[in-house]
Design a binder for these strands. Structure first.
Lengths: 196, 196
DNA sequence: AATAATAAATTGAACGATCAATCAATAAAT
DNA sequence: ATTTATTGATTGATCGTTCAATTTATTATT
Protein backbone atom coordinates (compact mmCIF):
# COMPACT_ATOMS: atom_id res chain seq x y z
CA UNK A 1 0.00 0.00 0.00
CA UNK A 2 2.93 2.28 0.71
CA UNK A 3 4.27 1.43 -2.72
CA UNK A 4 0.99 2.31 -4.36
CA UNK A 5 0.82 5.52 -2.38
CA UNK A 6 4.23 6.75 -3.47
CA UNK A 7 3.49 5.87 -7.04
CA UNK A 8 0.25 7.83 -7.01
CA UNK A 9 1.93 10.81 -5.41
CA UNK A 10 4.79 10.86 -7.89
CA UNK A 11 2.49 10.47 -10.87
CA UNK A 12 0.32 13.33 -9.74
CA UNK A 13 3.33 15.53 -9.02
CA UNK A 14 4.66 14.85 -12.49
CA UNK A 15 1.30 15.55 -14.12
CA UNK A 16 1.02 18.86 -12.30
CA UNK A 17 4.59 19.82 -13.14
CA UNK A 18 3.99 18.85 -16.76
CA UNK A 19 0.85 20.94 -16.90
CA UNK A 20 2.62 23.94 -15.36
CA UNK A 21 5.43 23.79 -17.91
CA UNK A 22 3.04 23.30 -20.85
CA UNK A 23 0.87 26.22 -19.75
CA UNK A 24 3.62 28.65 -18.79
CA UNK A 25 6.34 27.85 -21.31
CA UNK A 26 4.49 25.99 -24.04
CA UNK A 27 4.32 22.40 -25.21
CA UNK A 28 7.58 22.76 -27.10
CA UNK A 29 9.43 23.60 -23.89
CA UNK A 30 8.05 20.59 -22.05
CA UNK A 31 11.19 18.47 -22.04
CA UNK A 32 11.62 15.66 -19.54
CA UNK A 33 14.40 17.61 -17.85
CA UNK A 34 12.28 20.72 -17.50
CA UNK A 35 9.26 18.81 -16.20
CA UNK A 36 11.43 16.88 -13.75
CA UNK A 37 13.03 20.10 -12.53
CA UNK A 38 9.59 21.61 -11.95
CA UNK A 39 8.61 18.52 -9.96
CA UNK A 40 11.92 18.76 -8.07
CA UNK A 41 13.10 15.35 -9.16
CA UNK A 42 15.31 13.87 -11.87
CA UNK A 43 14.59 13.23 -15.53
CA UNK A 44 14.78 9.45 -15.26
CA UNK A 45 11.80 9.39 -12.91
CA UNK A 46 9.49 10.30 -15.76
CA UNK A 47 10.31 7.08 -17.56
CA UNK A 48 10.14 5.09 -14.35
CA UNK A 49 6.52 6.06 -13.72
CA UNK A 50 5.19 6.80 -17.19
CA UNK A 51 7.38 4.80 -19.55
CA UNK A 52 7.88 7.69 -21.91
CA UNK A 53 7.25 11.40 -22.19
CA UNK A 54 4.23 11.01 -24.46
CA UNK A 55 2.31 9.05 -21.82
CA UNK A 56 2.89 11.76 -19.23
CA UNK A 57 1.73 14.42 -21.66
CA UNK A 58 -1.42 12.45 -22.40
CA UNK A 59 -2.16 12.06 -18.71
CA UNK A 60 -1.67 15.80 -18.32
CA UNK A 61 -4.00 16.54 -21.22
CA UNK A 62 -6.71 14.31 -19.75
CA UNK A 63 -6.42 16.06 -16.41
CA UNK A 64 -7.08 19.51 -17.90
CA UNK A 65 -10.77 18.93 -18.50
CA UNK A 66 -11.67 16.82 -15.50
CA UNK A 67 -12.57 19.91 -13.41
CA UNK A 68 -15.15 20.79 -16.06
CA UNK A 69 -16.77 17.36 -15.92
CA UNK A 70 -16.64 17.40 -12.12
CA UNK A 71 -18.24 20.83 -11.92
CA UNK A 72 -20.98 19.80 -14.34
CA UNK A 73 -21.81 16.69 -12.32
CA UNK A 74 -21.77 18.65 -9.06
CA UNK A 75 -24.14 21.27 -10.42
CA UNK A 76 -26.53 18.64 -11.73
CA UNK A 77 -26.74 16.86 -8.39
CA UNK A 78 -26.88 20.14 -6.44
CA UNK A 79 -29.81 21.24 -8.59
CA UNK A 80 -31.54 17.88 -8.34
CA UNK A 81 -31.44 17.45 -12.10
CA UNK A 82 -31.51 13.71 -12.67
CA UNK A 83 -31.99 13.35 -16.42
CA UNK A 84 -29.70 16.24 -17.39
CA UNK A 85 -32.27 17.89 -19.63
CA UNK A 86 -33.86 21.30 -19.55
CA UNK A 87 -32.73 24.86 -19.17
CA UNK A 88 -31.12 24.33 -15.77
CA UNK A 89 -29.01 21.48 -17.11
CA UNK A 90 -27.95 23.59 -20.06
CA UNK A 91 -26.95 26.39 -17.74
CA UNK A 92 -25.04 23.93 -15.56
CA UNK A 93 -23.10 22.66 -18.55
CA UNK A 94 -22.25 26.11 -19.87
CA UNK A 95 -21.31 27.41 -16.44
CA UNK A 96 -19.10 24.40 -15.85
CA UNK A 97 -17.14 25.43 -18.93
CA UNK A 98 -17.02 29.18 -18.32
CA UNK A 99 -16.96 29.74 -14.55
CA UNK A 100 -13.85 31.79 -13.66
CA UNK A 101 -12.85 29.19 -11.09
CA UNK A 102 -12.60 26.61 -13.88
CA UNK A 103 -11.74 28.60 -16.99
CA UNK A 104 -8.40 29.92 -15.76
CA UNK A 105 -5.65 31.30 -17.95
CA UNK A 106 -3.38 28.40 -17.04
CA UNK A 107 -5.95 25.73 -17.83
CA UNK A 108 -6.98 27.40 -21.07
CA UNK A 109 -3.36 27.81 -22.12
CA UNK A 110 -2.56 24.16 -21.46
CA UNK A 111 -5.71 23.04 -23.27
CA UNK A 112 -4.85 25.13 -26.30
CA UNK A 113 -1.37 23.62 -26.41
CA UNK A 114 -2.81 20.12 -26.60
CA UNK A 115 -5.78 20.77 -28.90
CA UNK A 116 -3.68 22.70 -31.40
CA UNK A 117 -1.71 19.48 -31.94
CA UNK A 118 -4.73 17.23 -32.39
CA UNK A 119 -4.25 17.04 -36.15
CA UNK A 120 -0.70 15.78 -35.80
CA UNK A 121 -0.68 13.65 -32.64
CA UNK A 122 -3.17 10.75 -32.91
CA UNK A 123 -3.13 10.20 -29.16
CA UNK A 124 -4.22 13.80 -28.60
CA UNK A 125 -6.93 13.37 -31.23
CA UNK A 126 -8.34 10.36 -29.36
CA UNK A 127 -8.48 12.23 -26.05
CA UNK A 128 -9.91 15.33 -27.66
CA UNK A 129 -12.59 13.39 -29.53
CA UNK A 130 -13.71 11.61 -26.38
CA UNK A 131 -14.01 14.82 -24.39
CA UNK A 132 -15.74 16.71 -27.18
CA UNK A 133 -18.13 13.80 -27.65
CA UNK A 134 -19.19 13.87 -24.01
CA UNK A 135 -19.54 17.65 -24.14
CA UNK A 136 -21.78 17.53 -27.21
CA UNK A 137 -23.85 14.74 -25.67
CA UNK A 138 -24.45 16.80 -22.52
CA UNK A 139 -25.42 19.86 -24.54
CA UNK A 140 -27.80 17.89 -26.75
CA UNK A 141 -29.40 16.19 -23.77
CA UNK A 142 -29.99 19.52 -22.09
CA UNK A 143 -31.46 21.00 -25.28
CA UNK A 144 -33.98 18.18 -25.55
CA UNK A 145 -37.47 19.60 -25.47
CA UNK A 146 -36.49 23.23 -25.22
CA UNK A 147 -35.48 24.02 -28.78
CA UNK A 148 -37.91 25.69 -31.12
CA UNK A 149 -36.91 23.23 -33.81
CA UNK A 150 -35.96 19.87 -32.25
CA UNK A 151 -34.05 18.89 -35.38
CA UNK A 152 -31.76 21.85 -34.89
CA UNK A 153 -30.54 20.69 -31.48
CA UNK A 154 -27.40 18.94 -32.78
CA UNK A 155 -26.39 22.01 -34.79
CA UNK A 156 -27.03 24.31 -31.83
CA UNK A 157 -25.03 22.05 -29.52
CA UNK A 158 -22.10 22.06 -31.93
CA UNK A 159 -22.32 25.83 -32.30
CA UNK A 160 -22.20 26.22 -28.52
CA UNK A 161 -19.21 23.90 -28.21
CA UNK A 162 -17.30 25.82 -30.87
CA UNK A 163 -18.10 29.17 -29.26
CA UNK A 164 -17.01 27.83 -25.87
CA UNK A 165 -13.74 26.65 -27.41
CA UNK A 166 -13.29 30.09 -28.90
CA UNK A 167 -13.51 31.70 -25.49
CA UNK A 168 -11.15 29.14 -24.01
CA UNK A 169 -8.61 30.03 -26.70
CA UNK A 170 -9.17 33.74 -26.12
CA UNK A 171 -8.68 33.24 -22.39
CA UNK A 172 -5.35 31.54 -23.08
CA UNK A 173 -3.94 34.55 -24.91
CA UNK A 174 -5.10 37.24 -22.49
CA UNK A 175 -2.93 37.82 -19.43
CA UNK A 176 -5.78 38.64 -17.09
CA UNK A 177 -8.16 36.07 -18.47
CA UNK A 178 -11.76 36.79 -19.49
CA UNK A 179 -13.92 39.41 -17.84
CA UNK A 180 -16.74 37.94 -15.72
CA UNK A 181 -19.75 37.22 -17.89
CA UNK A 182 -17.92 38.19 -21.06
CA UNK A 183 -18.28 34.74 -22.59
CA UNK A 184 -21.74 34.18 -21.21
CA UNK A 185 -23.14 37.16 -23.17
CA UNK A 186 -22.07 35.69 -26.50
CA UNK A 187 -23.27 32.22 -25.59
CA UNK A 188 -26.65 33.57 -24.51
CA UNK A 189 -26.91 35.39 -27.82
CA UNK A 190 -26.45 32.14 -29.71
CA UNK A 191 -28.98 30.50 -27.42
CA UNK A 192 -31.64 33.18 -27.56
CA UNK A 193 -31.60 32.87 -31.32
CA UNK A 194 -32.49 29.19 -31.39
CA UNK A 195 -34.00 28.24 -28.05
CA UNK A 196 -37.42 28.99 -26.64
CA UNK B 1 16.68 43.23 -61.66
CA UNK B 2 17.25 39.58 -62.43
CA UNK B 3 18.91 39.21 -59.07
CA UNK B 4 15.99 40.80 -57.30
CA UNK B 5 13.58 38.61 -59.23
CA UNK B 6 15.28 35.38 -58.17
CA UNK B 7 15.32 36.53 -54.58
CA UNK B 8 11.60 37.26 -54.61
CA UNK B 9 10.84 33.92 -56.24
CA UNK B 10 12.93 31.96 -53.74
CA UNK B 11 11.47 33.78 -50.76
CA UNK B 12 7.94 33.09 -51.91
CA UNK B 13 8.72 29.45 -52.65
CA UNK B 14 10.15 29.07 -49.15
CA UNK B 15 7.18 30.78 -47.52
CA UNK B 16 4.77 28.50 -49.35
CA UNK B 17 6.77 25.39 -48.50
CA UNK B 18 6.96 26.51 -44.88
CA UNK B 19 3.22 27.06 -44.75
CA UNK B 20 2.56 23.66 -46.29
CA UNK B 21 4.73 21.88 -43.74
CA UNK B 22 3.28 23.84 -40.80
CA UNK B 23 -0.29 23.12 -41.90
CA UNK B 24 0.14 19.47 -42.87
CA UNK B 25 2.69 18.26 -40.34
CA UNK B 26 2.54 20.87 -37.60
CA UNK B 27 4.81 23.66 -36.43
CA UNK B 28 7.00 21.22 -34.54
CA UNK B 29 7.81 19.35 -37.76
CA UNK B 30 8.80 22.52 -39.59
CA UNK B 31 12.57 22.00 -39.59
CA UNK B 32 14.77 23.79 -42.08
CA UNK B 33 15.54 20.48 -43.76
CA UNK B 34 11.88 19.59 -44.15
CA UNK B 35 10.92 23.04 -45.44
CA UNK B 36 13.82 23.02 -47.88
CA UNK B 37 12.87 19.55 -49.11
CA UNK B 38 9.32 20.73 -49.69
CA UNK B 39 10.65 23.67 -51.70
CA UNK B 40 12.96 21.28 -53.57
CA UNK B 41 16.10 23.03 -52.46
CA UNK B 42 18.73 22.66 -49.74
CA UNK B 43 18.60 23.64 -46.09
CA UNK B 44 21.28 26.31 -46.38
CA UNK B 45 19.10 28.34 -48.72
CA UNK B 46 16.76 29.21 -45.86
CA UNK B 47 19.54 31.07 -44.08
CA UNK B 48 20.75 32.65 -47.31
CA UNK B 49 17.40 34.35 -47.93
CA UNK B 50 15.92 34.70 -44.45
CA UNK B 51 18.87 34.71 -42.09
CA UNK B 52 17.32 32.23 -39.73
CA UNK B 53 14.35 29.88 -39.45
CA UNK B 54 12.38 32.20 -37.18
CA UNK B 55 12.24 34.94 -39.82
CA UNK B 56 10.89 32.53 -42.40
CA UNK B 57 8.23 31.33 -39.98
CA UNK B 58 7.21 34.90 -39.23
CA UNK B 59 6.91 35.69 -42.93
CA UNK B 60 4.79 32.57 -43.33
CA UNK B 61 2.55 33.58 -40.42
CA UNK B 62 2.02 37.04 -41.90
CA UNK B 63 1.07 35.54 -45.25
CA UNK B 64 -1.73 33.41 -43.77
CA UNK B 65 -4.11 36.31 -43.18
CA UNK B 66 -3.35 38.47 -46.18
CA UNK B 67 -6.07 36.77 -48.28
CA UNK B 68 -8.61 37.82 -45.64
CA UNK B 69 -7.54 41.45 -45.78
CA UNK B 70 -7.46 41.34 -49.57
CA UNK B 71 -10.94 39.84 -49.78
CA UNK B 72 -12.30 42.43 -47.37
CA UNK B 73 -10.86 45.31 -49.39
CA UNK B 74 -12.11 43.82 -52.65
CA UNK B 75 -15.63 43.43 -51.31
CA UNK B 76 -15.67 46.98 -50.01
CA UNK B 77 -14.64 48.45 -53.35
CA UNK B 78 -16.91 46.09 -55.29
CA UNK B 79 -19.83 47.21 -53.16
CA UNK B 80 -18.89 50.86 -53.43
CA UNK B 81 -18.56 51.14 -49.66
CA UNK B 82 -16.12 53.96 -49.08
CA UNK B 83 -16.26 54.57 -45.34
CA UNK B 84 -16.48 50.89 -44.36
CA UNK B 85 -19.50 51.37 -42.12
CA UNK B 86 -22.96 49.87 -42.21
CA UNK B 87 -24.48 46.45 -42.59
CA UNK B 88 -22.92 45.78 -46.00
CA UNK B 89 -19.44 46.50 -44.63
CA UNK B 90 -20.07 44.24 -41.66
CA UNK B 91 -21.17 41.48 -44.00
CA UNK B 92 -18.11 42.03 -46.17
CA UNK B 93 -15.81 41.70 -43.16
CA UNK B 94 -17.47 38.56 -41.84
CA UNK B 95 -17.62 36.95 -45.27
CA UNK B 96 -13.97 37.74 -45.86
CA UNK B 97 -13.20 35.68 -42.77
CA UNK B 98 -15.61 32.79 -43.39
CA UNK B 99 -15.92 32.32 -47.15
CA UNK B 100 -14.95 28.74 -48.05
CA UNK B 101 -12.45 30.01 -50.60
CA UNK B 102 -10.57 31.78 -47.81
CA UNK B 103 -11.27 29.73 -44.70
CA UNK B 104 -9.65 26.51 -45.93
CA UNK B 105 -8.50 23.67 -43.71
CA UNK B 106 -4.90 24.32 -44.63
CA UNK B 107 -5.04 28.02 -43.83
CA UNK B 108 -6.92 27.45 -40.59
CA UNK B 109 -4.49 24.74 -39.54
CA UNK B 110 -1.46 26.94 -40.20
CA UNK B 111 -3.07 29.88 -38.40
CA UNK B 112 -3.83 27.73 -35.36
CA UNK B 113 -0.23 26.54 -35.25
CA UNK B 114 1.03 30.11 -35.06
CA UNK B 115 -1.62 31.62 -32.77
CA UNK B 116 -1.35 28.78 -30.26
CA UNK B 117 2.27 29.86 -29.71
CA UNK B 118 1.50 33.56 -29.26
CA UNK B 119 1.98 33.39 -25.49
CA UNK B 120 5.48 31.94 -25.85
CA UNK B 121 6.92 33.53 -29.00
CA UNK B 122 6.98 37.34 -28.73
CA UNK B 123 7.39 37.72 -32.48
CA UNK B 124 4.19 35.76 -33.05
CA UNK B 125 2.44 37.91 -30.43
CA UNK B 126 3.40 41.09 -32.31
CA UNK B 127 2.07 39.79 -35.61
CA UNK B 128 -1.09 38.43 -34.01
CA UNK B 129 -1.80 41.66 -32.15
CA UNK B 130 -1.43 43.73 -35.30
CA UNK B 131 -3.79 41.53 -37.29
CA UNK B 132 -6.36 41.25 -34.50
CA UNK B 133 -6.22 45.02 -34.04
CA UNK B 134 -7.04 45.68 -37.69
CA UNK B 135 -9.81 43.08 -37.56
CA UNK B 136 -11.43 44.67 -34.50
CA UNK B 137 -11.11 48.12 -36.04
CA UNK B 138 -12.92 46.98 -39.19
CA UNK B 139 -15.70 45.35 -37.19
CA UNK B 140 -16.17 48.41 -34.97
CA UNK B 141 -16.24 50.74 -37.95
CA UNK B 142 -18.89 48.64 -39.65
CA UNK B 143 -20.99 48.51 -36.47
CA UNK B 144 -21.00 52.28 -36.19
CA UNK B 145 -24.56 53.56 -36.32
CA UNK B 146 -26.22 50.18 -36.56
CA UNK B 147 -26.00 48.93 -33.00
CA UNK B 148 -28.95 49.27 -30.67
CA UNK B 149 -26.57 50.47 -27.98
CA UNK B 150 -23.62 52.35 -29.54
CA UNK B 151 -21.56 51.83 -26.39
CA UNK B 152 -21.82 48.09 -26.86
CA UNK B 153 -20.11 48.13 -30.26
CA UNK B 154 -16.60 47.35 -28.94
CA UNK B 155 -17.89 44.41 -26.94
CA UNK B 156 -19.89 43.11 -29.90
CA UNK B 157 -16.89 43.45 -32.21
CA UNK B 158 -14.72 41.51 -29.79
CA UNK B 159 -17.39 38.84 -29.42
CA UNK B 160 -17.55 38.44 -33.19
CA UNK B 161 -13.78 38.20 -33.49
CA UNK B 162 -13.62 35.50 -30.83
CA UNK B 163 -16.45 33.53 -32.44
CA UNK B 164 -14.73 33.80 -35.83
CA UNK B 165 -11.51 32.52 -34.27
CA UNK B 166 -13.46 29.65 -32.78
CA UNK B 167 -14.69 28.58 -36.20
CA UNK B 168 -11.21 28.92 -37.67
CA UNK B 169 -9.91 26.58 -34.98
CA UNK B 170 -12.80 24.18 -35.57
CA UNK B 171 -12.09 24.23 -39.30
CA UNK B 172 -8.48 23.28 -38.60
CA UNK B 173 -9.44 20.11 -36.76
CA UNK B 174 -12.08 18.86 -39.20
CA UNK B 175 -10.81 17.00 -42.26
CA UNK B 176 -13.48 18.28 -44.62
CA UNK B 177 -13.58 21.78 -43.24
CA UNK B 178 -16.74 23.63 -42.22
CA UNK B 179 -20.07 23.11 -43.89
CA UNK B 180 -21.19 26.08 -46.00
CA UNK B 181 -22.99 28.61 -43.84
CA UNK B 182 -22.27 26.66 -40.67
CA UNK B 183 -20.24 29.48 -39.13
CA UNK B 184 -22.46 32.21 -40.52
CA UNK B 185 -25.46 30.90 -38.58
CA UNK B 186 -23.72 31.28 -35.23
CA UNK B 187 -22.31 34.68 -36.14
CA UNK B 188 -25.72 35.92 -37.23
CA UNK B 189 -27.17 34.73 -33.93
CA UNK B 190 -24.65 36.86 -32.04
CA UNK B 191 -25.46 39.76 -34.32
CA UNK B 192 -29.24 39.53 -34.21
CA UNK B 193 -29.02 39.73 -30.45
CA UNK B 194 -27.23 43.08 -30.39
CA UNK B 195 -27.72 44.80 -33.73
CA UNK B 196 -30.76 46.51 -35.13
C1' DA C 1 30.97 38.02 -80.19
C1' DA C 2 33.94 35.53 -77.46
C1' DT C 3 36.31 35.34 -73.36
C1' DA C 4 37.87 36.60 -68.95
C1' DA C 5 36.49 38.44 -64.42
C1' DT C 6 33.30 39.17 -61.01
C1' DA C 7 29.30 38.37 -58.42
C1' DA C 8 25.44 35.68 -56.95
C1' DA C 9 23.22 31.29 -55.99
C1' DT C 10 23.48 26.85 -54.17
C1' DT C 11 25.18 22.89 -51.98
C1' DG C 12 26.55 19.59 -48.47
C1' DA C 13 29.62 18.62 -44.86
C1' DA C 14 30.72 19.95 -40.22
C1' DC C 15 29.88 21.85 -35.41
C1' DG C 16 27.92 22.43 -31.10
C1' DA C 17 23.78 22.00 -28.63
C1' DT C 18 19.75 19.56 -27.10
C1' DC C 19 16.67 15.96 -26.92
C1' DA C 20 14.33 11.22 -25.31
C1' DA C 21 15.51 7.12 -23.70
C1' DT C 22 18.50 3.54 -21.53
C1' DC C 23 20.89 1.58 -17.87
C1' DA C 24 24.03 0.47 -14.30
C1' DA C 25 24.72 2.07 -9.73
C1' DT C 26 23.16 3.87 -5.37
C1' DA C 27 19.89 4.91 -1.67
C1' DA C 28 15.73 3.95 0.86
C1' DA C 29 12.18 1.21 2.42
C1' DT C 30 10.13 -2.98 3.57
C1' DA D 1 17.58 -9.49 2.33
C1' DT D 2 14.77 -8.11 -1.11
C1' DT D 3 12.18 -5.00 -3.37
C1' DT D 4 11.40 -0.27 -4.69
C1' DA D 5 12.84 4.48 -5.62
C1' DT D 6 16.07 7.49 -7.49
C1' DT D 7 19.96 9.31 -9.76
C1' DG D 8 23.10 10.84 -13.36
C1' DA D 9 26.04 9.51 -16.99
C1' DT D 10 25.70 7.76 -21.64
C1' DT D 11 23.94 6.88 -26.26
C1' DG D 12 22.24 7.85 -30.66
C1' DA D 13 19.50 10.91 -33.20
C1' DT D 14 18.17 15.45 -34.70
C1' DC D 15 18.24 20.19 -34.63
C1' DG D 16 19.78 25.24 -36.32
C1' DT D 17 23.50 27.35 -38.01
C1' DT D 18 28.02 28.19 -40.23
C1' DC D 19 31.10 27.94 -43.92
C1' DA D 20 34.17 26.61 -47.56
C1' DA D 21 33.58 24.80 -52.07
C1' DT D 22 31.06 24.57 -56.34
C1' DT D 23 27.98 25.88 -59.86
C1' DT D 24 25.53 29.35 -62.32
C1' DA D 25 24.68 33.94 -63.87
C1' DT D 26 26.12 38.60 -64.93
C1' DT D 27 29.35 42.12 -66.33
C1' DA D 28 33.55 43.91 -68.46
C1' DT D 29 37.11 43.64 -71.80
C1' DT D 30 39.16 42.49 -75.88
Amino acid sequence: MARRSIEEIRRQELVEACLAVVAEEGHDAATTQRIAARAETSAGIVHHYFGDKASLLQAAMRSVRTPVADAYRDRLTAGGIADGSGRAALSACIDAHLDPSILTVRRAAAWLQFTSRVAYVPDYARIHAAIRCRQIAALRRSLRGMSADPGAAPAVALRLAIAIDGFWAECATREGGLMPGEARAAIDAILSDSVL
